[in-house]
Design a protein around this nucleic acid. Structure first.
Length: 459
RNA sequence: GCCAGGAUGGCCGAACGGUAAGGCGCACGCCUGGAAAGCGUGUUCCCUUUGGGAUUCUGGGUUCAAAUCCCAGUCCUGGCGCCA
C-alpha cells in the first residue's frame, strides 16, 4: 500500500508511475475522497473538543452539587453528541472507502525499471551456461512424454483422484522432488537463511498483507466457501506461495535493528487456480494447481533493499549453477511487474524439448523458475512490519523482498529435458546425487495395471 | 469441545463509572574534571501542529461520561475432555 501523505504530496509522480504500469486507477478520485475526509475529520475533532470540555465541567458540577448547571451541561453535551455522530459517520465511511481504494493501488515502480507495456519489453540482462552445453539427443523428448513413458509422472491418475492440473510423482520422480528440496535448502542455509516450515492455510488478512487480496482472489483456493462470496479476515485460503505465511509471520511486530537483515527460507506446497490456462504451452507440469517451492524471504533496512535484491537474485541463481542448468536473467519492465513489486528480476531456465518462438537460438523454450522482487514498504505497510532504527525513535516500515529458490516442477522439467540421454534415460546432476543415494541415472519404472498391458507396455 | 482466569505504551505494571499512576529501557539536556548517581524533558497514531483529536485486544451496547458495567468475537494461560 502506498503512503497517503506521499500520495497527497506527489500526485503527478504517482500518476505517471501507475500509467507506466498500465494500472487502471483513478487517483484524482482517491485524492478527492482524502480531501473530503480531512475536512470532516477536522470538523469532528472540533466538536469533540467542545464536548470533552463540557463533559469535564459536568464532573465539576457534580462535585459542587450544582444541579442546575449540571442539567444544562448534560443537555448541551447530548446535542453535540448527535452532531458528532453525524459528522463522524460520514468520515468513517470515507475512511473505509479510501482504505479499500488504496488496497487496490499497485506499487510504484523503481526508477531503474525499464519502461514497457508487457512481457515483450522485458530486458534480458545475461545468460549463463550456454557456452559449455552438454551433448543432447538429436530429438529431445518433452518431459510430459518422457515422464509418462518412464512412469515417474502420472498426470492421468492425478486427474482421477483430484482433478486436472494435479499429478502424481512416482518412484525416481518423487525421489527427485525430495532430493531437490533438500538440496535447495542446504544451498540456502549456506547463504544464511533460517528454515521455516509454515502453516499452509492462511487468513484473508495475511493474503491482504502481501497483496494477493483483494484484487487477486480468483487466483487462490479458498477453504470452505466459494470465491464469489464475501470473505472475513479470519477466513482461510490455501497458501499460494510461502511468501504469504512467512512475510506475515512478523505482521504487527516491531523488529530490532539488530534483527535485520532477516533471511528466511520455507518449503511449502503452493496452490493456484490458474483459471483458463490450458494449451500447448502448459502441457505437462509447467503450470499446475499444486506445486512445491522453496521460497526465500528477506526483511531488510530500507536503505539496503536494492543491494539485497542483487544478492537475493544471486542466491536463487546459485541453485541452477550448481545443477548445471543453463538459464537467463530478465529485468521485468514496468508493465509486467506484479502488483506489489517495485522491481523484479525473473530467472528463466532452459527447457530444450519444445521449440517455441521466443526460446533461444539453441531451440527449446524458457521457463520462469523464480522472480526476485523488492516490495520496498508496500507489504510492510499492509502487514504492519516495522523496525526501530534508533532505540529512542519511532518505529519505521522495513522493506521486504522475496524470490523463489526455486519452483520445483519447472526445475524438474529442465532436468528431464536437459539431462536427457540418447537412450531415453536421464542423468542425475552431480549436485543432486548425494541426496539420491549416489544414484546417477533415472531409467524409469515398469508401468502398473491392465492399461499397461493393452498399450503393450507389459506382457 | 467445556470450565476458569487473563489481554493496558518498546517492556513491566496500577487505576471507587469522572477522563490512563509508577517503574524499567532508550534519547536529549542540566549537573560533573570525566563518569555513575541525581534532576528535568521526551519516547503510539491522525489532523489544518503555539493547537486539537483518537488510542487500555477487536466489534457492538448502557451512560452526560467506560480501562472500569453488559453482549459477541479473537488470542493467551491453567484445568478437564477428545485425539493422529
Amino acid at each position: 500500500m502506498l503512503d497517503r501523505t506521499y500520495l497527497r504530496e506527489n500526485p503527478d509522480e504517482v500518476r505517471d508511475a501507475l500509467e507506466n504500469r498500465g494500472a487502471d486507477v483513478d487517483l484524482d478520485e482517491i485524492l478527492a475522497i482524502d480531501e473530503r475526509w480531512r475536512e470532516l475529520k477536522a470538523r469532528g475533532d472540533e466538536l469533540r473538543h467542545e464536548r470533552n470540555q463540557i463533559t469535564q465541567q459536568i464532573g465539576t458540577y457534580v462535585a459542587e452539587g450544582n444541579e442546575e448547571k449540571r442539567e444544562q451541561a448534560i443537555e448541551q453535551s447530548r446535542e453535540l453528541k448527535g452532531e458528532i455522530e453525524e459528522v463522524e459517520a460520514e468520515a468513517d465511511d470515507l475512511q473505509e472507502e479510501l482504505q479499500e481504494r488504496l488496497l487496490e493501488v499497485p506499487q510504484v515502480p523503481h526508477e531503474s525499471v525499464p519502461l514497457g507495456l508487457d512481457e515483450r519489453h522485458n530486458v534480458e540482462d545475461r545468460r549463463w551456461g550456454f557456452d559449455d552445453l552438454r551433448e543432447l539427443p538429436g530429438e529431445v523428448v518433452p518431459h510430459y512424454e518422457l515422464g509418462e513413458e518412464m512412469d515417474i509422472i502420472d498426470e492421468e491418475r492425478g486427474a482421477k483422484t483430484t482433478g486436472a492440473g494435479f499429478y502424481f510423482l512416482k518412484g525416481d520422480g518423487a525421489r527427485l522432488e525430495h532430493a531437490l528440496i533438500q538440496f535447495m535448502m542446504d544451498v540456502h542455509r549456506e547463504q544464511g537463511y533460517v528454515d521455516l516450515f509454515p502453516p499452509v492455510p492462511v487468513k484473508s488478512a495475511s493474503m491482504r498483507g502481501t497483496g494477493q487480496l483483494p484484487k487477486f482472489a480468483d487466483d487462490a483456493y479458498r477453504l470452505g466457501d466459494s470465491n464469489d462470496e464475501d470473505y472475513d479476515d479470519e477466513d482461510l485460503w490455501l497458501c499460494p506461495t510461502a511468501e504469504v505465511p512467512v512475510t506475515n509471520m512478523y505482521a504487527g511486530d516491531i523488529l530490532l535493528d539488530d534483527d535485520l537483515p532477516l533471511k528466511h527460507q520455507a518449503y511449502t506446497p503452493n496452490f493456484r487456480r490458474e483459471a483458463g490456462e490450458h494449451g500447448t504451452e502448459t502441457r505437462g507440469i509447467v503450470r499446475v494447481h499444486q506445486f512445491n517451492k522453496v521460497e526465500l524471504v528477506n526483511f531488510v533496512r530500507p536503505e539496503e533493499s536494492y543491494d539485497r535484491l542483487e544478492g537475493l537474485l544471486d542466491e536463487a541463481e546459485e541453485v541452477l549453477r550448481r545443477l548445471g542448468l543453463p538459464y537467463r536473467i530478465l529485468e521485468l519492465c514496468t508493465g509486467d511487474l506484479t502488483f506489489a513489486s517495485a522491481k523484479t528480476y525473473d530467472i528463466e531456465v532452459w527447457a530444450p524439448a519444445d521449440d517455441m518462438d521466443d526460446g533461444p537460438e539453441e531451440g527449446g523454450r524458457w521457463l520462469e523458475v523464480s522472480s526476485a522482487s523488492n516490495f520496498e514498504e508496500f507489504q510492510a505497510r499492509r502487514a504492519g512490519l516495522r523496525y526501530r532504527p534508533e532505540r529512542h525513535e519511532s518505529a519505521e516500515y522495513l522493506h521486504t523482498l522475496n524470490a523463489s529458490g526455486l519452483a520445483l516442477p519447472r526445475v524438474m522439467v529442465a532436468i528431464l529435458e536437459y539431462y536427457q540421454n540418447e537412450d531415453g534415460t536421464v542423468t542425475i546432476p552431480e549436485a543432486l546425487r548425494p541426496y539420491m543415494d549416489d544414484q546417477e541415472l533415472i531409467e524409469g519404472h515398469e508401468k502398473v495395471g491392465e492399461s499397461a498391458l493393452g498399450a503393450g507396455k507389459r506382457e
